[in-house]
Structure formats: structure tokens, C-alpha cells
Design a protein around this nucleic acid. Structure first.
Lengths: 239, 239
DNA sequence: CGTCTGGTTGATCTAGATCAACAGGAGTGG
DNA sequence: CCACTCCTGTTGATCTAGATCAACCAGACG
């Protein structure tokens, strides 16, 4: 199941370097990270870390998709958030020296670098810009959480689903031969329900409803947008 | 209504200095803040800043209570969070150079210091520990938001109310002559509803129910705990 | 004295949870 | 190969927490 293989490449050549916290580091500092990192190609199902584990470093997603999963006190696990190419995962637990508050799981084939804590700690004192980047990241994560919080309050499940559809579309969307906008949802139905904060049964019904209304067509994980403007409208997306 | 009066005192003597971001600053640095700050004694209803304003500095609550209020696209305002003695408000907007995402309003008589942006910016480059403190603050705000997010998902309004009651109790609680644990809720019913993410009518009914069940007695804003252990239990508080 | 605002109550409605049944793979083991 | 059990997803029936709509009350305030 964990069909992993290791490899090595320099951060200098990382295509998403300029969108990560490491963007301000010089060649020498990047080399320090290279020395402390472990790059791994993993397939879906692989666990990067478990909720409750002590943070031992930071994970940097070179390509692919990682899901953050939270397990509540009753043992119910549910997907909380997805993180894609060019983002770092687990930095909050590491920086606040606490245990991971959720688990990280590979959702689609991905390349992920693990950077050991010691190197980061050293760089943090040497280069204050690095801390500044993490600060910005934390603030933007906060804002994202806050807006999904209010979205859950003010929109119903259907609108929330259409919203997340658009989020996926902006990232993975494509136009088919016929010109129809399409997107492949990168998660299972159950996980989709978790992201929206509803039960799997409700997810199913929502899916049924949006199809009956002719907004989209759903085939397994592939979604075709039939009335894009209406979808955007109901999703509460202006522009 | 805005019964404000100015005054001046040094951060050096601030009793809550050691619980704020400024704890690592030396005497000279604190003086820099003193020079750029404006202390104000305000009464309930006073607005510190409005949602949408450009951030011009950071507010430091010396004493009292400040509420963060969010106005949605339909113009409905609702209390999102309360901040008390020894915390800073508005730091996220300032640090990310964005507009305030909500308004800050004085809820009970308070002393609040406003620290102008220029001084903080200067200190941030001079003393990297300051940024580190803000980072920690941001992470803990994130965690707090995340847990209230999941609490809203997994608990009903009654439990959430009992939970927030305990939060207030831990801060403002007292024991009366008869030994009964009491607390004065520092916000109106409507704002309480906002904090719990429900409508005022539902708040009223919840209040009624917990009284009928004999868990607490409510007199205006004063709450008396009749069966503290049951309250803690239903609030999902362990110890 | 009327008006307004905040809070309470009643009646009703509905989104979504819950419980139960079932259908299609995907393994797994004989 | 079939029989078996899982596991995910879909559908139906029902239930319920909380929203919504409407009426009302009390204190504040012009």
C-alpha cells in the first residue's frame, strides 16, 4: 500500500520554491535544508503523521495533494482541509512545540519533502525573514478557517458544495473537447462530506439535488459544469 | 456615549506586560512603545476600529473586555469573539497589511492602549523575538478558532452555552456569601447568541431549558451554578 | 405619551441527522 | 471458481434542533 520511493533533488530547483516559506533563503541556507530533508514519492493512503504525534519537522508538498484529517473524541475521523503543491504542512505544531492536532494523509500521488526540525530551528534564528513568512502563513490559514467558519454558518450544504467545487475547479479544472468545463474531485464522497461538515448520506442527497437541478453532471469523481454562472452565483462567488 | 478620557502611563508598569507580545522588550524598547502609544479609558459601546478599515496599529487591552463583531454581506452583525485583559487586538490585520476583518467594540469599562504602526514596524525588524511572539499568538488564535469550529459541529446549542458559561466563569467567576459559584455574563443576550452561532430566539429557549433542568439559575446577567459538576459534564469539560 | 430596542414566548417549517436497507465492487479464503 | 465479508455509496423513512415568522412585553428615551 505504501508504495514509496526515495530520491534527492535540491530545493534550488524546486519549481514551487518561490511560493513557500523558503523563498527568502539564500543558496547556502537552502543547502542546509537540502541536507536535512528527505524527499519521498508516495501514493494515496500514506500517512505523513498522526494526530497526537510530537512534531519532528515540517512537510513541504512538492506536488500532489495532502489531506488533514481530524479524529474526534468518539473516534470519528473526518477530512478537515486539503493542502496542495507548494504549501507546507505541520508547521504550526512544530513552531508551537505541540503535538499535531490532526493527521496528514496523501490523497493523490505526491512528492513530499520532510525537513527535520533541527535545520529549521537553526535557520529561524539566523534568518528572521523565515519566521516572518511563517507568521504570514499562519495569519492566512487563520483567515481561511474563519471564512469557512462563517460560510458554514450562513450557507446551506448545497451552496457550500458548489463553493468547494469551484475551489477545486480553479486548481484542477480543465475544458474537455466539447469545451465543457470539468474537474475531477480529488477526494472520496465521505471525505467530501467531511470537508463540508455534513454526513455522507447528506452528501449523497446534495449530489443528487444539484444534478436534478441541472447545475452539474457527476460521473464518479468527474464533475461537468452545465450552468457555470448559476453555480458561481449559488456558491456566493462574485466576480 | 463615548465617555472617553486620555491618560498616560508607562508600559514598564503595566501589570499584564508579561503576558503580552511585549514581554521580551527591554526598557528602551518599551519606551519606544510608550512614545507611540495612546492610552484611553472607554465605556461600553465605544468602537476601537471598524471592519474594513485599514489597520493603523495594534490595540492592547490593559483592562476590561473588547468584543470582535463581524458584519456579513446582508448587514447582520454578530459577536465573534471576546478579548480580555492582557491581549492584543488587531495584530493580524496590521501584520498582514490588510483591512480589519471585523470591528472591535468595548463591552465593559476598559483601558485600551493604541500603539501606532510605525513604532511596531521598527521594533519588529530590531527585535526578532517580537515577531516570534506574534507568531505564537497567531497559532494559538488559530487553535482556538479550530476548536470552536469543531465544537459547533459536534455539540448542540445547550452544551455550547454551558461551555461558554464555564469560560466566563474561569475568568470572572466568584463565590457568593452562600458559597454558590456565580458569574456575571459580560455580554447581552443577542451577543451571546452570536458567540454561539445561533439566533436570539434560540438563545432565549436554551436559557429557559437549562433553568428548567435546574442546572443554573439566571437573573438578568447573573448566573448561579446549581449543579456545577453536571454543567461541566455537559459542557464537555473533563477534569 | 408614542416609539424603539432587547428580550421572551408560541406556532410552524425545514435542513440535515439518524436509522435502516440495499447495491456494487474488491478482496480473501476455501 | 464461488462464497463470503468488507467497504463505499445510494436511497427511503423518520426525527429533531434550530430557524423563521409573528405577537407581545418591559424598560429607555425622545
Amino acid at each position: 500500500m505504501t508504495n514509496d520511493e526515495c530520491q534527492h533533488s535540491s530545493c534550488l530547483n524546486c519549481p514551487s520554491r518561490h511560493s513557500t516559506e523558503w523563498r527568502d533563503l539564500n543558496a547556502q541556507e537552502l543547502e542546509a535544508i537540502d541536507g536535512a530533508k528527505l524527499t519521498r514519492r508516495s501514493s494515496p493512503g500514506t500517512i505523513l503523521f498522526h494526530q497526537g504525534d510530537e512534531a519532528g519537522g515540517i512537510y513541504c508538498i512538492q506536488s500532489g495533494l495532502v489531506g488533514l484529517r481530524h479524529i474526534d473524541e468518539h473516534g470519528n475521523s473526518s477530512l478537515v482541509k486539503t493542502c496542495s503543491t507548494g504549501t507546507t504542512v505541520g508547521y504550526q505544531a512544530f513552531l508551537s512545540k505541540t503535538a499535531y492536532s490532526n493527521s496528514a494523509e496523501i490523497l493523490i500521488d505526491s512528492e513530499v519533502c520532510f525537513i527535520h526540525s533541527s535545520a529549521i530551528s537553526r535557520l529561524l534564528v539566523e534568518n528572521p525573514k523565515l519566521g516572518e513568512r511563517f507568521l504570514q502563513h499562519s495569519i492566512s490559514d487563520f483567515n481561511e478557517l474563519e471564512s469557512s467558519y462563517t460560510r458554514n454558518q450562513s450557507m446551506d450544504a448545497k451552496s457550500r458544495f458548489l463553493h468547494i467545487l469551484m475551489v477545486f475547479y480553479r486548481q484542477y479544472g480543465f475544458a474537455d473537447n466539447d469545451g465543457c468545463p470539468r474537474v475531477d474531485i480529488p477526494v472520496t464522497r465521505g471525505d467530501l462530506a467531511g470537508l463540508l461538515g455534513i454526513q455522507p448520506e447528506s452528501m449523497s442527497r446534495t449530489l443528487r439535488k444539484v444534478q436534478d437541478e441541472g447545475l452539474v453532471a457527476v460521473n464518479d469523481r468527474r464533475v461537468t459544469f452545465l450552468r457555470m454562472d448559476d453555480v458561481m452565483n449559488e456558491a456566493g462567488i462574485a466576480e
